[in-house]
């Protein structure tokens, strides 16, 4: 049983461990890495958000303030995860940012059709990549005004 008592700011959905490590390093450098939950596939992401499987229901659980979502994922891909998040009342308003290698137009169109908050393609150069990830975290966690919580 995983300890889920901590408050999670960012849910990082990324199957590639090196990308995940780079992303977490960038967030850490921007001092945003304290509360990150990293899951490696789409199914785990939904389990986490809907408290299924290895994640037990917990009174103290709060939705993350940002989901960083890759598109090509094992089991369930990013588009399906986004569909599920936007399809449920409880998770509908969570900010979701697609962070992916793909620049394909069809992926961008599909993501925006499902109401993604932002679509960012991962830069190859590390400096740019670090800056992009850090900016994303800063914007969504510090600058953006989230919708008021119902409870």
């Amino acid at each position: 049983m995983i300890n889920t008592n901590k408050i999670v700011d960012i849910l990082l959905v990324e199957d590639n461990p090196t990308d995940a490590e780079l992303e977490m390093r960038a967030l850490k450098k921007a001092r945003l890495a304290n509360n990150i939950e990293w899951v490696k596939d789409g199914e785990a992401a939904l389990d986490y958000l809907f408290r299924h499987g290895e994640y037990s229901a917990d009174d103290e659980y709060q939705h993350p303030r940002l989901v960083l979502l890759d598109l090509r994922l094992p089991k369930l891909d990013g588009i399906d995860v986004l569909k599920a998040i936007r399809g449920h009342e409880a998770t509908r308003e969570i900010p979701v940012v697609i962070l992916t290698s793909s620049k394909e137009e069809r992926d961008v169109v599909a993501a925006y059709d499902l109401g993604v908050n932002s679509y960012v393609s991962k830069p190859i150069a590390f400096d740019e990549f670090t800056e992009t990830v850090a900016n994303l975290g800063m914007y969504w966690l510090l600058i953006n005004q989230p919708p008021p919580q119902d409870d």
């Binding site: 590639n16 090196t18 780079l22 992916t100 830069p123």
Partner: peptide, 21 residues
Amino acid sequence: SYSVSHDLRSPLRAIDGFIAI
């Protein structure tokens, strides 16, 4: 080309990133 766009980028990013680290 979709695979190229997605899969070939990740290792490159890793090379560049980890050298930077």
